[in-house]
Design a binder for these strands. Structure first.
Lengths: 178, 178
DNA sequence: TCAAGCAGTGCACAACCTGTCTAGCTATCA
DNA sequence: TGATAGCTAGACAGGTTGTGCACTGCTTGA
């Protein structure tokens, strides 16, 4: 098996983790900016052959770097204007998995993490209004194993979720340590 | 201006907010499951005319329900295995915007919210290792206006970010209240 | 030092899909 | 009742995709 991270570049450091190329980063950036672009148009914009773009994309997907091209849905546009982070303590006897499984059945729960610190779980929820948030929190509290919850409302989101700066940074980090 | 939410359905309630149809929900679900599907294939799967799918998609995008089709990048696949939530207090004199602006310059900061509660800002950060997380937090603390931070590490993510259950739930909510 | 393997390039082909337009039909709303 | 909006079905040209091939250049390992 050949070294995944040392091919075809004099600058690339030999790291035993999967990294991405500058071309990969530019490809991801391009597709993020204009997602409807086809492979052919990408190859034109990037100045490489179509087969290269096709191969890069396949590889990024195969490696799990790109997990999908799903449509990004805005909960706010659906009327879910309230976002909150709910942390909770759970009864430790049964572990956290059954609780997370029950939380997953609530559509308004968008994300669940197990965390360090005073609480055990942190989840992101959305609701239509503050009153509706109460309904969602009630559903969470009703989950068997949930002992106490603590809610924090997100008033504004000055930086919405993004990965692009990270993607652009990876190849530069590689080059800086020859 | 005509009523956006009452067209073409005997079940739909007149709500003065933008909602989605059952067909919209099925379209989004389908595209989420198999994002590489074209419009024509979608129309076949959904059993409607191609023009309908095209029109629905255009409308969903125009309304802001679908904000994009960007490639979903997994930070973990890029070597950023550590996810943490960092809440912070900031100096109130200058407001929170300049702080958020500086935080946005840190690639590892994926998301920033202004929040209720003891802290002022909550952000999601990623890092390569726990030691690397220290580096990122140091960068955050160095931001002018940041007084104190509190970090919570996400050990596991039993429910990764998803919107699909919410999307599927919206049309059913509409029907339930005639 | 040399052969092998991997990326990339350029080209070709058929099949398919997209964007766009038309026309007719139906349901809703004023 | 008339006007409007949405869905269907069909059509068209043009571009794009998936795939295969041969060739080049670089890196690797014997």
């Amino acid at each position: 098996m050949h070294n995944l991270s040392s091919y075809h570049s004099k600058y690339r450091v030999v790291l035993y983790s999967m990294t991405i190329d500058d071309l990969d980063a530019r490809l991801i950036s391009l597709l993020t900016a204009e997602p409807r672009l086809g492979v052919l148009e990408c190859s034109r914009r990037l100045g490489v052959a179509r087969g290269t773009v096709q191969a890069r994309l396949d590889r990024l997907i195969a490696r799990g770097v790109i997990t999908g091209f799903g449509p990004d849905v805005s909960p706010a546009a659906l009327g879910y204007d309230v976002t909150a982070f709910v942390s909770m303590e759970i009864r430790q006897v049964a572990g956290h998995d059954p609780v997370a499984h029950q939380l997953a059945r609530i559509p308004e729960v968008l994300e669940v993490h197990t965390i360090t610190g005073d609480s055990d779980l942190l989840c992101r929820v959305v609701a239509r209004t503050n009153a509706d948030l109460q309904r969602v929190i009630d559903q969470i509290v009703d989950v068997r194993g949930v002992l106490r919850t603590n809610s924090i409302i997100a008033l504004d989101t000055p930086v919405p979720y993004r990965v692009l700066p990270l993607v652009a940074d990876v190849p530069r980090r590689e080059q800086r340590s020859p």
